[in-house]
Computed example of a mutant assay.
Amino acid sequence: MSFLTLNSLSKIYGNFTAVDAVNLEVSKGEFVSLLGPSGCGKTTTLQMIAGLAEPSAGSVMLDGREITREKPNRRGLGIVFQTYALFPHMTVAQNVSFGLEMRKVGRAARDRRVAEALALVKLDQFADRYPRQLSGGQRQRVAIARALVIEPPVLLLDEPLSNLDAKLREEMQFELRRIQQTVGTTTIMVTHDQGEALSISDRVVVMEHGKMTQADVPAAVYDNPATEFISSFIGKMNNIPGIALRLGIQSSGVILPATDCPATEGEPAILSLRPERITIVPAGQGHLHGVVSARFFFGSHWLFNVDTAVGQIIVSWPNTDGSLPASQGQPVGLSWSPESARVSARTQETSRIDA
């Protein structure tokens, strides 16, 4: 049963439609990420849920109650911004306690709930410190504790980890998920970071040009993207244009196999293949032949650029034992399981991506 429901939610500024009739149902306790590039409408959607932006059309329902026109303070939602917005003159405990004081919660109950919130984010030993005495990750956890201490029905996160360095951001992703699962609060997070959304969400909602283009579990969004935009935006993807066959495509005179072929046979089509699903094999073997033009080291894996008859193909190779399958300038073959390739009809959108 839906706990938070967006019904045809829209926001229009003059002639510009920022959010276009978004429909979304979120279950109680679910962690949902709104994912998309800058300007896609994800933050505006969050602001309409929070009451910080008034919808041009549509409605917001919370636990069966319409809150579309309610003031933000009447909704009782917890909000964490990317800037933390902590009070510099207040201690950690005072920052976390502020929302409870505004709600006139008694001193004893307030102290208990603040202590519980700080323990939850592992900052109970920092209660008397000021924000300037904390690291970026610690300040972020204070902001999360302040939002959770009021026991909100929904927690809204607006790019909450964007100000952290790469390593700390990754650590905080898992910490954020741990906190959310411990409390069980329904959570909506806005992010442009694909890895962040895929790793900690129950569902990912991909937005493009104000529209919701796919809402699904992370693995389905990654493995079965609904549009060519999603296939290229989330992770890396090799998009190879050609003519649809019954089991694959023909491109530049080469037949490339696939089993998922909804495109009409004989019509323009595109084969999509993730770099990590491709295996480098000796020259003369595999489905496609080429020459390694470049390789890049990322620690846990290598990326190879392979020039082929159908264009440059990206291959991801895991760094399991330090060995490499090919050197720069070496002829190689490329192989993959047909089940891992996806064929779809070629659209104008696909042509823009290829350009």
Score class of each variant (00 low, 15 high):
Met1His: 11
Phe3Gly: 04
Leu4Gln: 04
Ser8Asp: 11
Leu9Trp: 06
Lys11Ser: 00
Asn15Ile: 09
Ala18Lys: 01
Glu30Asn: 04
Gly36Ile: 02
Thr44Gly: 10
Ile49Val: 09
Leu52Thr: 13
Glu54Phe: 15
Asp63Gln: 09
Val80Gln: 04
Val92Ile: 02
Val96Ser: 08
Met102Arg: 11
Gly106His: 14
Gly106Cys: 15
Ala108Leu: 14
Ala108His: 15
Arg110Trp: 06
Arg112Lys: 15
Val121Gly: 01
Leu134Tyr: 00
Gly137Lys: 00
Arg139Val: 00
Val142Pro: 02
Leu148Lys: 00
Ile150Cys: 06
Pro160Lys: 08
Leu168His: 03
Leu168Met: 02
Gln173Phe: 07
Gln180Tyr: 07
Thr187His: 03
Gln194Trp: 09
Ser201Arg: 03
His209Ile: 11
Ala215Glu: 06
Ala215Ser: 12
Asp216Phe: 13
Val221Trp: 05
Asn224Pro: 15
Glu228His: 09
Lys236Thr: 12
Ile240Phe: 09
Ser252Gln: 08
Ser252Ala: 14
Val254His: 13
Cys261Ser: 09
Pro268Asn: 12
Leu271Lys: 05
Arg274Thr: 09
Ile280Thr: 08
Leu288Gln: 10
Ser293Met: 15
Trp302Cys: 07
Trp302Tyr: 11
Gln312Tyr: 09
Ser316Val: 12
Ser327Leu: 14
Gly329Gln: 02
Val332Gly: 10
Ser337Arg: 14
Asp354Thr: 14
Ala355Leu: 12
